[in-house]
Amino acid sequence: MNEAVQLTHISHIYGRHRVLYDVSIAIQPGIIFGLLGPSGSGKTTLIKVLLGILKPALGQSIVMGTRMPSLHQMKHIGFMAQSDALYPELTAQENMEYFASISGLERQSVKMRVKSCLETVDLTSSAKKQVSSFSGGMKRRLSLAAALVHDPDILILDEPTVGIDPVLRETIWKEFHRLTVEGKTIIVTTHVMDEAEKCDQLALLREGEVIVQGTVEELKASIKADSLEEVFLHYGRVTS
């Protein structure tokens, strides 16, 4: 089994509302995989299923050959939620140290990793400030740093660049590409087209179903479109 992540026939319901229906996705290692879809299409639910923190009604999530949930695999996964899961009373540094320690990082390497991850997201100068004083964008960056801190093989990011200015967004995407060169796999959800363009592979999710998946070029070619936006609009229309 070579896939970094394999989701097979996943279906889930909340109450009587169907949120995921027969989703099967295979993600190769070393790529950036984009989950594209309008809000409410089930992206976040799918990510929770992938992580093993939500048990789907049907189907299973296999990460690097191990069925989730698995405490062992959790060590190799970095997760950044859609909401900034941070402790507002603590400083950026203290938040990072906490997430580093619970991720099973050795005590000696915690300090070094925290420092380098804060550098990546350009928060070094604010390391000693309490998170409650942070702007929305700063919190987003800190969340990203917290997901990176234990140097995971698979990085799962739910809308990572919302509220981050274009310059820093560019830097962060460069960092993503650098990580894939190291062999890491990155899974991002987004509804921003220019970000989707940067993904190696895409899956378009609508009302809990995968409508189409493939590389950006494949998607465009499938309907002879010039831009991804057209693809997005096209597939949004045909199913409704």
Binding site: M74, D84, A85, L86, Y87, P88, I102, S103
Partner: peptide, 12 residues
């Protein structure tokens, strides 16, 4: 605030 979920998405 989601930190419980984040903690549970770790080997804790």
């Amino acid at each position: 605030q989601g930190t419980l979920e984040k903690s549970l998405a770790s080997p804790l």
